[in-house]
Computed example of a mutant assay.
Amino acid sequence: MTADLSLAALVLFASHALPSWPGVRPALIARMGRGGFVALHSLGSTLALLLFIWAYREAAGSALLFTPAGWAAPLVVALMPLAFLLIVARVTSKAGHPEAPNTPAGIFRITRYPGSLGLLLWALLHVQATGDGRRVVLFGTMAAIALFAMVKNDWVLRRSEAGRAYRTETSVLPFAAILAGRQRLALTEIGWGRLLGGLAAYAGMIAVHPLLFGIDPLYWL
């Protein structure tokens, strides 16, 4: 692992965190216009990602920080469908603005932040199954971005009456609000389409994983 990769990871995290911090986005839009903000944000995010990819490639052959357990790879394969389902369900569901969230429905009855939780699960599963320095930095950065999003959105929710009510009705921990009686499980609101979409995305990733990353997730079978 090199200093360049650590710096690139910090830049990538900042490219996600800074523009989304409360007050920053509206201020930039007021100053630059929505089109200008979108263009600047897109350019900055792209450059940060390209910088990280370059640093990641340069760090090839980084030292092994720990040896993954024998059950690490099978655990990734077993639980990644859940990560894909959470992300697909979030992308295809409307949550509203953190200061004026929609009434909890579908996947939001199960967890308040399905997309960020799916990304966090993705990152943590892969950290424990890799062990080399550069991939620990990669997935550690993913985890940091997901955690930041959850903490930031929770802070924003606390600022409005509607947001505080939404926090009371939902939970970050999956099914906690349902078990506490604050929500009910409504699988029909999630729908078969999202379930099948998540599984299809997972199957697609399994198929292209060896081509994109040089590793077959099913090598242990």
Rank of each mutant, 00 (worst) to 15 (best):
F52T: 05
I53L: 15
W54L: 00
A55F: 10
A55P: 12
R57Q: 14
E58W: 00
A59W: 10
A60E: 15
G61D: 11
G61K: 12
G61I: 02
G61M: 06
S62A: 15
S62M: 07
A63V: 13
A63F: 08
L64F: 07
L65R: 04
T67F: 01
P68Q: 01
A69K: 04
A69I: 01
G70S: 06
W71D: 04
W71E: 00
A72G: 06
A73I: 05
P74Q: 01
L75D: 04
V77M: 03
V77D: 07
A78S: 10
L79G: 06
L82S: 04
A83Q: 07
A83L: 09
F84I: 01
L86W: 10
I87A: 13
V88M: 09
V91H: 13
T92V: 11
S93L: 05
S93R: 06
K94A: 13
G96W: 07
H97K: 15
P98L: 05
P98H: 03
E99I: 02
E99L: 09
A100G: 05
A100W: 08
A100K: 14
A100P: 02
P101N: 05
P101Y: 06
P101T: 03
N102E: 14
P104E: 08
A105M: 07
A105F: 10
A105N: 12
G106R: 12
G106A: 09
I107L: 07
F108S: 04
F108M: 06
F108T: 05
R109A: 02
R112I: 02
Y113H: 15
P114V: 00
P114F: 02
